[in-house]
Amino acid sequence: MFQEYYDAARLGRALEIEAPKKSKTGSLDNLSERFIDWMQDRVMSGNLSKLTLSSRTTGLNQACDTLDPDGDRMGTLSADLPIEAFQHIVDGFGVKTGAADTCLKALRAAYTWGKTRGFPKHSAVFEAKSGHKSKGGALQWDANDIGKYLSTHGPGSMARLWFCLAYDSHGRIGDMHRLGRENEVMHGDDRYLEWQPSKKGSAFVSIPFGEMLAAELEHHDERDTYLVTEAGAPFASSGALDNKVRKWIIEAGLCVDATDADGEPIYVGKGKRKIVKKVATRSQHGIRKGVAAMMANSGASEFEIMASFGWTEAKTAAIYTKKFARRGSAASASKRMASAAEACKSTKGVPRPVPRGTPSD
């Protein structure tokens, strides 16, 4: 508050500052504030991601700022709330069930942390339902999507370099803005791209350098990071890059019109510049999912996919390998059935594991 004190001093008066209000002990505000402080310490020590902190903080603030039927903030009430109170918070999100689900997850995390620190041990928050149904997450890019994007963003453009980096590295958006020449390593005569993913618990990634990325880099000057802004500076954060990526995707026509809860179009701009807002339908995570599916379809094992994506648990890779293993088994079974049918036609008999002759006519 330096500026406020300085301005007051210039006017020759003392600055009257109202002391920040402290949350009531045992209230929902108190639980949220203490949990957020604890999470911030964990982020500083490298044991929690900033994205998790941001998501949970947003969810908890939304819960605390929700007004109860009497017009009071829910945060001022006792943390020992009944199921109706939590359902009231969730219902306040209306059709935004995804946001409601995020809020509910943040509350559950806070109460799980708080039950050994003087807060309710058996909170009704674990009984509340958001009503959110997953739509399968990010959409995978298909050949048509890739064709549209690359035809829009030609060689030498930052938009194309992002796609080549995202596709050949199949990394997370949270790591792309910091990758550069220093991540290139030679193992014998082979060039590799190596980095430690920022997501907690991820394994170190070391993969052969992609041909598409290598070819695109020939159109760019050498710099500390592969991806830079129009001013030539590295992106300040993954969020800044993500915003730019959405713009590039929309420019390629991979988007839909934005609508409100009533299905009405959302506009941006004024007067003659007023247009319907566009929402990107593809993302970097969709590239990541598509590459994982392609690897599985090509016969890659769970451990091979794990090494390529920095996963430490086989169950994540199994999401992709099981799908194609079932498809392969079904195809194999169909071929066996077709073979059996042909055998029956030619021999008028039934194929058996052990030959026992063929019945007569």
Score class of each variant (00 low, 15 high):
I83L: 14
Q40F: 10
C64D: 09
P82V: 10
E84P: 02
K121S: 15
D72T: 12
S123A: 14
K115I: 05
K129T: 07
G46N: 09
L67Y: 08
D29C: 06
S23Q: 13
T116D: 14
P120F: 04
A85I: 03
S78V: 11
K129D: 02
C103G: 00
Q87L: 07
A85S: 14
T52W: 09
A106F: 01
S55M: 04
Q62G: 03
L77H: 15
R56V: 05
I36D: 06
L104I: 06
D68L: 06
Q87H: 10
R34Y: 13
T112A: 08
Q40W: 11
K21E: 14
P120T: 05
L60C: 07
S130T: 02
H122A: 13
T66Y: 04
P120R: 05
R42S: 14
N30C: 14
D65R: 13
L77D: 02
K121Y: 11
K21H: 09
G98C: 04
F126L: 10
M44D: 15
T57L: 08
Q62T: 06
P120A: 06
Q62I: 01
L107Y: 00
I83M: 08
D29A: 09
K129P: 01
K105Y: 00
K121L: 11
T97R: 15
D80R: 09
D41E: 15
S78Q: 05
L104W: 01
P82I: 08
L48I: 10
V125Q: 01
F119N: 08
P69R: 11
G75F: 05
L28I: 03
A79H: 09
H122C: 04
L107R: 00
L51C: 03
G114N: 06
G71V: 11
K22S: 15
F126T: 04
V90E: 01
T116Q: 14
D68K: 04
G94H: 03
D29P: 03
A109H: 02
M39E: 13
V90C: 02
F119V: 12
I83N: 03
N61K: 15
I36H: 06
S134P: 06
A106D: 01
P82W: 07
S27C: 08
L48S: 05
D37E: 15
Y111L: 04
S49M: 08
L67C: 07
P69T: 14
K21Y: 05
P69Q: 13
P120H: 03
L28Q: 03
A19N: 09
S45A: 15
G26C: 11
E127H: 10
V43G: 08
V95H: 04
S55N: 10
L104D: 01
R34N: 14
K115T: 10
K24M: 11
F93A: 00
T102G: 00
R42A: 15
M74D: 03
L48C: 12
D68P: 07
F93P: 00
G26Y: 09
P69E: 14
R108C: 04
D101Y: 02
S123D: 06
G118A: 14
E33W: 10
K121H: 14
T102Q: 00
W113H: 07
S134V: 03
K21S: 13
K50S: 12
T116R: 10
L107I: 03
V95T: 10
S27K: 04
Q40N: 14
A124S: 11
V43A: 11
K115R: 15
A124H: 07
K105D: 00
D29G: 05
K96M: 07
S130F: 00
F93Y: 03
F35T: 08
D29S: 07
D41F: 12
F86D: 00
